[in-house]
């Protein structure tokens, strides 16, 4: 306990407190042991800059979800250190991690984002309810307005389309004003129109609200909305790209596939 607290206080975020919303240093994540050992992440160094939209791409099984889960404090790392803001989260207890997630992190999953027993509005305010905080009413209205759900707030998730559900999830992630939002293929289940609605919205929240977002995706078009794309292969960050477009990402992916097969 004391050592963990000490670590929190003494270990500065290597990228500097103002610049990075999250950082990872030499993070290794291995599953199993001996013969069946799988190294999902291999000594990864990452810095997620504040107020930017970062996309993570890579072939299936490359460790994208694992990296995101580790960064968000949902999973423990085998080796290495991770910071959210100025707080080192490696070594934190479940209680502290829960509090951290509640206060500083928002999530958007690929599917099953909402509680079926709560209506849209209740789902949106749930993180604040849980934390025992009052929602900032003006901000809430603005968020709801932006996602275009004002007339759907009383609906249960089952009464909403997949795209609408996903937008509720985005609104939930934004409403609590977390320091960082993680999305694991948030548009993976959506058609291109609904997908682009959600992505446009995420983009706007970065531009207009200075929100920090990390998104795992397989879709070059989705990655095109980001400020920066990290390419992961076999648990290692092999490349990165700034100000990507769908085409440049696709191009990069092709090269990448070619390299892999060669």
């Amino acid at each position: 306990m004391t050592t963990a607290t000490a670590a929190v206080q003494t270990s500065e975020n290597p990228g500097g407190p103002s610049a990075n919303a999250a950082s990872a240093r030499l993070v290794t994540k291995a599953y199993g042991s001996g013969e069946t050992r799988v190294t999902a992440l291999d000594a990864v160094d990452v810095d997620i800059q504040r107020g930017r939209f970062t996309a993570i791409m890579g072939p299936s099984g490359s460790g994208k979800s694992t990296l995101m889960h580790c960064l968000a404090g949902l999973d423990t790392v085998t080796e290495g250190r991770i910071w959210i803001g100025d707080t080192e989260i490696t070594g934190l207890k479940d209680k502290q991690l829960t509090k951290l997630r509640r206060d500083k992190i928002g999530f958007i999953f690929q599917s099953f984002n909402l509680l079926p027993t709560l209506n849209a509005l209740e789902n949106i305010t749930l993180p604040m309810d849980i934390a025992g905080r009052k929602a900032d009413q003006a901000w809430l209205e603005q968020v709801v307005e932006t996602v275009g759900l004002a007339d759907r707030l009383k609906h249960r998730p089952t009464q909403l389309s997949g795209g609408q559900q996903q937008r509720v999830a985005v609104a939930r992630a934004l409403a609590a004003r977390p320091e960082i939002i993680f999305g694991d293929e948030p548009t993976g289940n959506l058609d291109s129109r609904s997908g682009s609605e959600v992505l446009t919205f995420l983009r706007r929240s970065v531009d207009e609200l200075a929100q920090t977002i990390v998104m795992v995706t397989h879709d070059p078009v989705a990655a095109g909305y980001a400020d920066r794309v990290l390419f992961l292969a076999d648990g290692v960050i092999v490349d990165e790209m700034h100000a990507p477009t769908a085409d440049s990402v696709l191009e990069r992916m092709r090269r990448f596939d070619g390299k892999r097969t060669s």
Binding site: R101, R102, G106, F107, L115, P127, I130
Partner: peptide
């Protein structure tokens, strides 16, 4: 299970 996972992910503590 999934609901509980979701709740935990968005910050519901074990006690809650």
């Amino acid at each position: 299970t999934r609901e509980i996972g979701l709740l935990r992910a968005i910050g519901l503590s074990r006690r809650q």
